[in-house]
């Protein structure tokens, strides 16, 4: 086990280093020179530009710049944002909790709904219910997440007036609410964005879970369980679902990047001040240190998510432990 963990950890670190290298390459392959405009200015002598270049370390060979870039990132230094005039890492850390909250809520909905629907479908494969749900999940899976968000806004907040149109808390009432009221206000604001993100994810999870159940249901031990006269419910819950959940653990790792990408759009629709909205605003202002920082952070979260999923799979499935 320890050998596996170390190996897997080394692999994750390598991919993380790869991501950082890739962003460095992208940054340097991009056209334009930071001092191109300065060179044309009549007010700056070539010596002053050379001095500035030296100050930023841009006169050093590329590999020195690369090592410095990696070193800075390892210490959490992602540079200073052009548009916010504050360190990128600070801005990201401020926005991260909101994104994590949204992603966690969406993840619960995603897996709760997806596994329930997928199991139901798999146990009753071929029935009309299964076919209807298959069409619904495929349609939902193909729905653009930002449009679904807008439609939920249209129905639940603008027509029915049940939920707020955006933001994390009520801008006026929040400071005067009791602690319990504050919590409820937050949850109330969380509902629509989380459902938007969760529904699209649940559609994918349900399709995956249905296939996993179908794989399991074919096997002999399910036939044996049925032959012993167990109720269909007991067969589903105790025998089929337990085994079909194994591949779903892998799906957990795969869901993470999808959730983060979706969060970028959902946060924009609901003006949710998270990492995604921060990134989109940064893109529109061409604030590349912030965009790069957010990308590196997102990729690291994905790598971490995959690592956790792999370890969980290892713990959950005894068969994988025996190989090496």
């Amino acid at each position: 086990m320890i050998a596996f963990v170390t190996r897997r950890l080394a692999q994750a670190l390598l991919i993380a280093l790869g991501v950082v290298t890739l962003t460095f390459i992208l940054l340097h392959a991009a056209p334009g020179d930071p001092f191109a405009a300065a060179a044309e200015s009549p007010y700056l002598s070539p010596q002053a530009i050379e001095q500035a270049r030296r100050n930023y370390g841009l006169d050093r060979p590329l590999w020195v710049q690369y090592l410095r870039y990696v070193g800075n990132l390892a210490r959490g230094d992602m540079g200073v944002s052009f548009s916010l005039h504050r360190p990128v890492s600070e801005a990201l850390l401020d926005a991260l909790p909101n994104t994590l909250l949204l992603a966690a809520a969406a993840l619960i909905l995603d897996f709760g709904l997806g596994i329930t629907v997928g199991t139901l479908q798999g146990m009753r494969a071929g029935t009309r219910l299964d076919r209807t749900l298959s069409i619904v999940t495929l349609a939902l899976f193909s729905t653009p997440v930002f449009w679904l968000g807008l439609m939920l806004l249209l129905v639940f907040s603008q027509t029915l007036g049940l939920f707020p149109v955006g933001g994390v808390t009520d801008p006026v009432l929040y400071p005067s609410l009791s602690p319990l009221g504050k919590l409820l206000d937050r949850l109330w604001h969380l509902c629509l964005p989380a459902w938007t993100l969760g529904l699209v994810g649940a559609a994918g999870t349900a399709r995956y879970q249905r296939a996993a159940i179908l794989e399991v249901v074919r096997q002999d031990f399910i036939r044996a369980a049925r032959a012993r006269g167990l109720s269909e419910r007991a067969v589903a819950m105790r025998h089929a679902l337990r085994n079909a959940l194994l591949p779903t653990i892998t799906l957990f790792g795969l869901t993470f990047p999808v959730l983060l990408s979706g969060a970028v759009l959902v946060e924009t629709v609901f003006s949710w001040p998270g990492m995604g909205k921060l990134t989109v605003d940064a893109v529109l202002r061409r604030d590349y240190p912030l965009v790069l920082g957010a990308t590196v952070l997102a990729a690291l979260m994905v790598v971490l998510g995959n690592l956790l999923a792999d370890l969980a799979y290892r713990v959950a499935d005894p068969r994988t432990r025996e190989e090496r």
Partner: peptide, 24 residues
């Protein structure tokens, strides 16, 4: 394949946003 793994680790939309920010 390690290169592909690395590229797949970056969520698509972030990768696209980086490229679209850096290039005209």
């Amino acid at each position: 394949m390690r290169l592909v793994d690395t590229a797949l680790a970056i969520p698509r939309i972030f990768l696209l946003l980086v490229v679209l920010t850096l290039w005209e």
